[in-house]
Structure formats: structure tokens, C-alpha cells
Design a protein around this nucleic acid. Structure first.
Length: 281
DNA sequence: AGGCAGGCTTTTA
DNA sequence: TAAAAGCCTGCC
């Protein structure tokens, strides 16, 4: 069905923002999106109109929350003053259309363990291999096959060789440990939701192969904690170069993670996806 | 205790 | 050869 979306929504920017790894541009303006065990095609029709290839009930029960449509991102951008913070203002203007997806926490755990020390195409390749190896084979609305994101049970059954065949390298141990943790109740999203942010980071970083950065990504993209602020090398460069006197977290709470996404995308576009920072730290 | 160096792995340019 | 949305272990 065709939906009109008046708030910020730019699938291309979301697809390139590094928060999701199973979006694929299949035609001009059409993305095939796989999340957990679901698949949808969305097409930008121009203006505010988008084609969602599913029925209205499915949009409401599934995709409305996935795309975070209840939250007004224009209002979040409007909190940034061009006078007090010209860099962040420029970032929000330039990257308007980004939203923070509400993705499956388990899928985020594995995806961001895989992401460490790798570029986005390599991450996508590994995740797709993993899904093909032990995800569930399904058929989408167009009759095309796809694989669901694998369950903890399925991943726990994989051997070292099978995991390594997914090009995850030394991270295979972390993935295996994460699967066992999930099976033993040591990765419990509903429990994490009852904790404070610092306590959640503490719990997540107990998992083998999960540091503070990956923990923050799981919180931001999997638990929809929009104040979580992942600090990777790029964000550290931004903080050093643009906020030498300190970054005003308090001013931007409770949406620090959203602004981080704008800054990250903007800075990478400005400096080139593979170029080092102008002034490295 | 907390910071730092070195190792881990593979793909891409 | 270097760099890529890091983290672990061991050493100090």
C-alpha cells in the first residue's frame, strides 16, 4: 500500500548510515529490507509517498515501529541551534532523513560483534553468509527466497570452520560465545530495559568480544535507547576536532545517539568514506 | 586501579 | 601495504 510520510525519511541515507546491514537497493528507489525473519520492499515514489509492499495491518504491527515512525525526527533536529552549534546544525541539515531503526537486539549483538575492525561491505557479506548458512529459508512477497537472521540455537550449532567460512576471522569465538550467552539467559533484552544505561553497558560488556562501543551500538540500534552514544574512531575525531572544549551531552539528552548518527554520516561524507580524518587524534 | 602496546583476521583499494 | 563503526590479553 502507498503511505504518505511527512516526517524525515530518506531510505538511502538510512541504508548508508551503518546501522543496518541487510538493506539492498534492488531497483532505482526500491530497497529490499530484511530484519529478523521478515522482509519488505519499499519504494520511494517521490514527494512524501512511499510504496510498502505489504498490507496495512503488517505496516502497523511490524514496520511502523521498525522505522520508528511514531517519533518526530524533525522536532529532534529543531533542537539544534545554528548559532550555538553550527557543526551539528549543518550535520542535521545535510543528513536529514536519517532515522534510528528499531531492530532486533540479538541481530544487533551479532552484527556489531562482526562489525569490529571492518568496513560496511565486509560486514554485509559476513552477515549474509551467516544467514545463508543457518538462517531459515523463506519466501518474500515477490516470491524471492531470503534467509532469516539465525537464532542463537542455530549459531550455537556451528563449528569453528563453519563460522570462519563466513569470513568473521578471529571473531568466531565471540559469535559462538554470544550464542551460548543468549541460550543461557545472559543476553536478555527485557532485563536490560529495566537497567540504567551505565548498568546496561556493564552487563553487555561482560559478553566476550563486546566492548563499550559495541555495547552502545546494541543499546542504540537494538534497545532503542536514543541517548546511547557509540564512540568509534570517527566520533573521537569529531569530538577532538569540533568540540575541543567538550561535547555538550546534557544539552542534547535524551537524543545523543540520534545526533551521533547525523554527525557520523556528515563527517564521513565530508571527509570521504575511506580518507583519514583531517586532523587525526 | 587503569593505561598502553601488540595481536587477532580478512577484504579492499 | 594500509586501513577498516574494536576488543582481548598481558604488562607496567
Amino acid at each position: 500500500m502507498i503511505v504518505s510520510i511527512s516526517d524525515d525519511f530518506d531510505p538511502r541515507k538510512i541504508a548508508e548510515s551503518g546501522q543496518c546491514f541487510r538493506w539492498k537497493l534492488v531497483e532505482n528507489n526500491t530497497w529490499r529490507i530484511i530484519s529478523a525473519d521478515q522482509c519488505i520492499y519499499i519504494t520511494s515514489l517521490g514527494g512524501t509517498d512511499y510504496l510498502f509492499e505489504c498490507d496495512e495491518d503488517t505496516i502497523h504491527s511490524l514496520w511502523e515501529n521498525y522505522f520508528d515512525f511514531p517519533l518526530n525526527y524533525r522536532a529532534i533536529r529543531a533542537r539544534v541551534s545554528p548559532e550555538t552549534d553550527s557543526f551539528l546544525y549543518d550535520a542535521t541539515e545535510h543528513e536529514k532523513g536519517i532515522r534510528i531503526l528499531q531492530q532486533d537486539p540479538w541481530e544487533m549483538l551479532i552484527s556489531f560483534i562482526i562489525s569490529q575492525n571492518r568496513n560496511i561491505p565486509a560486514i554485509q557479506h559476513s552477515i549474509e553468509s551467516l544467514a545463508e548458512m543457518c538462517g531459515e529459508l523463506k519466501t518474500d512477497v515477490r516470491g524471492e527466497p531470503f534467509y532469516s537472521f539465525p537464532s542463537p540455537e542455530a549459531i550455537a550449532l556451528l563449528s569453528e570452520q563453519e563460522l570462519k567460512a563466513c569470513r568473521v576471522g578471529y571473531r568466531w569465538k565471540y559469535i559462538q560465545a554470544a550464542a551460548h550467552a543468549a541460550l543461557h539467559g545472559d543476553f536478555c533484552p527485557d532485563f536490560f530495559r529495566s537497567l540504567s544505561p551505565e548498568e546496561t553497558i556493564k552487563q553487555l560488556t561482560k559478553l566476550y568480544g563486546v566492548g563499550r562501543k559495541v555495547a552502545c551500538c546494541i543499546m542504540l540500534f537494538g534497545l532503542h535507547q536514543l541517548d546511547a552514544f557509540p564512540r568509534d574512531v570517527w566520533v573521537n575525531r569529531i569530538l577532538a576536532n569540533k568540540y575541543p572544549d567538550g561535547y555538550p551531552y546534557d544539552r542534547y539528552s535524551p537524543y545523543n545517539g540520534v545526533y551521533q548518527q547525523y554527525m557520523f554520516a556528515y563527517y564521513r561524507h565530508e571527509n570521504g568514506k575511506t580518507a583519514p580524518g583531517i586532523t587525526d587524534v
